[in-house]
């Protein structure tokens, strides 16, 4: 198996955390992982995209070059970038609370999910939207084990901000249910 993932979002939405959680869960599941991020003269609140390749074989080409097969777009301004990195097969999950119109791409399955609204519903804040999206992607593709992702969320978020653990887990589970 090989998933070439594209996670894009605007500053503070947690696309980088999303990428990190996926990597850590994949490592626990004994998979190979490469993560790269766009970098340069960035600013707070700016757009960012993280690329993660997860594979059960050694990873030769570390680039996602318009051949992504699992995408998550969190914001309207990064939806286009995310779409451009996707190939003609696979699934792109997008946050339809913020991304109002879908741009068609032949062969690619696009899944709208009102992630910001769902996050507010289950946790009282839109901040868990990245985990709602992750939940939906994990449920639909099964590219990672649900229990491994939950374990990694506990370790990563629970370790630093124990108070936020419950709301993040609730967001992830809401994503699992909505898929």
């Amino acid at each position: 198996m090989r998933y070439k993932c594209v996670f894009s979002g605007s500053g503070g939405q947690g696309s980088a955390l999303l990428a990190k959680l996926v990597c850590q869960a994949a490592i626990v599941d004994k998979l190979k992982v490469v993560m790269s991020q766009t970098y340069g003269i960035e600013q707070r609140g700016g757009d960012s995209t993280a690329f993660v390749i997860v594979s059960d074989q050694p990873i030769g080409n570390p680039l996602v070059e318009a051949d992504g097969n699992l995408g998550i777009a969190l914001s309207a301004s990064t939806y286009g970038t995310c779409l451009a990195s996707m190939g003609n097969e696979g699934q792109l999950f997008y946050n339809s609370s913020l991304i109002k119109s879908e741009i068609e791409k032949p062969g690619l399955t696009q899944v709208p999910l009102k992630a910001s609204d769902i996050a507010i519903e289950v946790a009282g804040t839109p901040r868990g939207l990245n985990l709602v999206m992750l939940g939906a992607a994990v449920a639909a593709t099964k590219f990672l084990k649900v229990e491994t992702v939950e374990e990694v969320i506990r370790e990563t978020i629970g370790h630093k901000k124990a108070a936020l653990l419950d709301s993040n887990l609730a967001s992830f589970r809401a994503g699992l249910d909505k898929a």
């Binding site: 990597c23 490592i27 190979k32 992982v33 490469v34 993560m35 790269s36 991020q37 970098y39 990873i59 570390p62």
Partner: peptide
């Protein structure tokens, strides 16, 4: 620098 900035196992 591209390889340098990648994160991997």
């Amino acid at each position: 620098g591209v390889t340098a900035q990648m994160t991997e196992t």
